[in-house]
C-alpha cells in the first residue's frame, strides 16, 4: 500500500509480566486503504479496545509494526517522538458518546484541533464550518452541545475527527447510542467523508444493523484478527480460510 491508509503487521500487546501476563493482542494484521471504511468486530475482551488504543498512540504495543501510509510510526518501539502531535495531526477519533467539550459551541468544538495545531482561529473556524456544512449541521454552528440532538452531536464529533484531515480515523462504537436510521446515516456520512478526504476509517462496533454496510470487516478473537471472506468464512493473516 502506498500513500495514506494504515498498515499493521504482527502487532502484539502484553499486559503484565510472568504468570500474571495477559496477551491482549497476539499478532494483529490489518490494512485499510485510503477512502476505505472497515468494520472491526469482536466480543468483549477480544482486544478491540487495546487495538484501538495502540492505533491511537495512547498505549505502546509490545512489538510489531504500525505505519500510516509510508510513515512507520511504530516498529518494536515508537518511531515518532511527539505522540501528542501524532494524535492531533494524523489520527481522528470518534467515540461511542460524542464527548464534545460542553463549554465550546459547535464551531469551536470542531475548530479546536486546528487551533491546537497552531492554525489561526479564522482559518480553523472556516475549516470547521466547511465540514459542518458537509455534514449538514451548519445551522447549529453557534449552538452549545447540550442543545443538539444525539445524531447532531455525533455528526459534530465526526467533523471534529476529520477537521485536521487525518489519514486515519478511529471510530469506537460511533452508533451505539443511536437508533437504526441515525446509525446508518452516520455510517453513510463516514463513507462519504472517507472517500471525500481519502481517509482510512476503522469502525469498532457491536452493532448488528451496521455490520452489513461495511465492504470489508475484520473480526478479532483472542487478540488475533481475521478478515471476513463472506458467508461466515474468515481469512487469517496468511489469507487462509479458518
Amino acid at each position: 500500500m502506498s500513500g495514506k491508509g494504515i498498515r499493521i503487521e504482527d502487532l502484539k500487546k502484553r499486559y503484565g509480566t510472568g504468570d500474571a501476563a495477559v496477551d491482549a493482542l497476539n499478532g494483529v494484521d490489518m490494512q485499510v486503504a485510503p477512502g476505505e471504511v472497515v468494520g472491526l468486530i469482536g466480543p468483549s475482551g477480544s482486544g478491540k479496545s487495546t487495538l484501538l488504543k495502540c492505533l491511537g498512540a495512547v498505549i505502546e504495543p509490545s512489538s510489531g509494526l504500525m505505519a500510516l501510509g509510508d510513515e512507520v510510526i511504530y516498529h518494536n518501539g515508537w518511531k515518532v517522538r511527539d505522540l501528542r502531535a501524532l494524535r492531533r495531526d494524523k489520527i481522528g477519533f470518534v467515540f461511542q458518546a460524542p464527548y464534545l467539550i460542553p463549554f465550546l459551541d459547535v464551531t469551536d468544538n470542531v475548530a479546536l484541533l486546528p487551533m491546537l495545531a497552531g492554525i489561526p482561529n479564522d482559518e480553523a473556524r472556516r475549516r470547521a464550518v466547511e465540514l459542518l456544512t458537509a455534514l449538514d449541521v451548519q445551522h447549529r454552528a453557534r449552538a452549545m452541545p447540550s442543545r443538539l440532538s444525539g445524531g447532531e452531536q455525533q455528526r459534530v464529533a465526526i467533523a471534529r475527527g476529520l477537521v485536521n484531515r487525518p489519514p486515519i480515523i478511529l471510530a469506537d462504537e460511533p452508533t451505539a447510542a443511536l437508533d437504526s436510521e441515525r446509525a446508518l446515516a452516520v455510517i453513510r456520512i463516514l463513507e462519504d467523508m472517507a472517500s471525500q478526504f481519502e481517509t482510512a476509517i476503522i469502525v469498532v462496533t457491536h452493532d448488528e444493523k451496521i455490520i452489513p454496510t461495511f465492504k470489508r470487516t475484520y473480526h478479532i478473537r483472542d487478540g488475533i484478527t481475521y478478515e471476513e471472506a463472506g458467508e461466515g468464512r474468515l481469512l487469517n493473516s496468511a489469507g487462509k480460510l479458518t
Binding site: 501524532l86 464527548y99 471534529r160
Partner: peptide, 16 residues
C-alpha cells in the same frame, strides 16, 4: 475529567 481525557487524546498539550 472526561473532557480533559478527550482533550489529551486529541493532542492538547499538558501546558494548555
Amino acid at each position: 475529567i472526561r473532557e480533559i481525557a478527550v482533550l489529551k487524546l486529541l493532542g492538547t498539550r499538558n501546558r494548555t
